[in-house]
Design a protein around this nucleic acid. Structure first.
Length: 221
DNA sequence: GACCAGGCACATC
DNA sequence: GATGTGCATGGT
């Protein structure tokens, strides 16, 4: 039995699926908006909401800052939970204006741990959303854990069933080089794998790495 | 019609 | 700390 590291597993996924080109968004602010809108929501629905915001000329911190809450909610309606997500977007914008002059570029010089704590203090931004913002919008080497990550690692006995978010994050961050591009691609590949092979009610037999070439001898640590 | 989707806050025990 | 619930649209 060949033992494979998380790095080697990554290589198998990359060789199989190729680059995923995440995050799908043209600007850091679009990425942040998508991170909030995609909470428990299909990405296709999020794209519709983002298209609405773009078409209406509201996809910037300053534009959103001045946009009425009910108007914002209507624009993002396709993304679901539109009332609460409108508030969450406003909460982020208000934090940005009250603490950082409304400029994303002012975040670049802030220490990652402090920035994460500030983001988590914004109502509506939890661990996954904060880490998605840090990694994909701000380029910090933070591993993003999501439902797919938990499901895949659990089904392959990489973690205990009762493992928490931070334990999952630690698993990846402590066993991989602190490399933003690697974390970017790895998370995207896990999502790709999860979407295709690791549905909630699917059994392990149909699930992930067994289906990939040359992976039958994987033993996780 | 049921299930699912790149969560989070809050109430309750 | 663990568990349950509300939030909602749109695709399969």
């Amino acid at each position: 039995m060949t033992r494979k590291t998380l790095t080697e597993i990554y290589q198998l996924l990359f060789d199989h699926f190729g680059a995923q080109h995440w995050w799908p968004g043209e600007t850091p602010f679009e990425i942040i908006t998508g991170a909030i809108l995609t909470q428990n929501t299909n990405w296709a629905n999020v794209e519709k909401a983002i298209t609405n915001l773009k078409s209406a000329g509201h996809l910037s911190p300053k534009q959103l800052y001045h946009l009425d809450l009910s108007q914002l909610a209507e624009l993002i309606r396709p993304a679901g939970y539109y009332n609460i997500k409108a508030k969450r977007l406003k909460n982020f914008i208000n934090w940005l204006f009250e603490n950082h002059d409304g400029e994303l570029k002012n975040l670049y010089c802030i220490d990652t741990d402090q920035l994460r704590a500030e983001l988590l203090a914004v109502k509506g931004i939890g661990r996954e959303t904060a880490d998605s913002i840090l990694l994909y919008a701000l380029g910090r080497p933070v591993f993003v854990v999501d439902a797919y990550t938990a499901r895949i690692t659990l089904r392959h006995s990489l973690i205990e069933p009762d493992a928490h978010y931070e334990q999952l994050r630690e698993l990846f961050e402590s066993n991989l080089p602190q490399d933003t591009q690697l974390f970017n691609e790895y998370h995207a590949l896990l999502v790709r794998l999860g979407k295709e092979f690791c549905r909630p009610k699917a059994k392990c037999a149909c699930c992930p790495l067994e289906k990939l070439p040359h992976t039958l001898d994987i033993e996780y640590f």
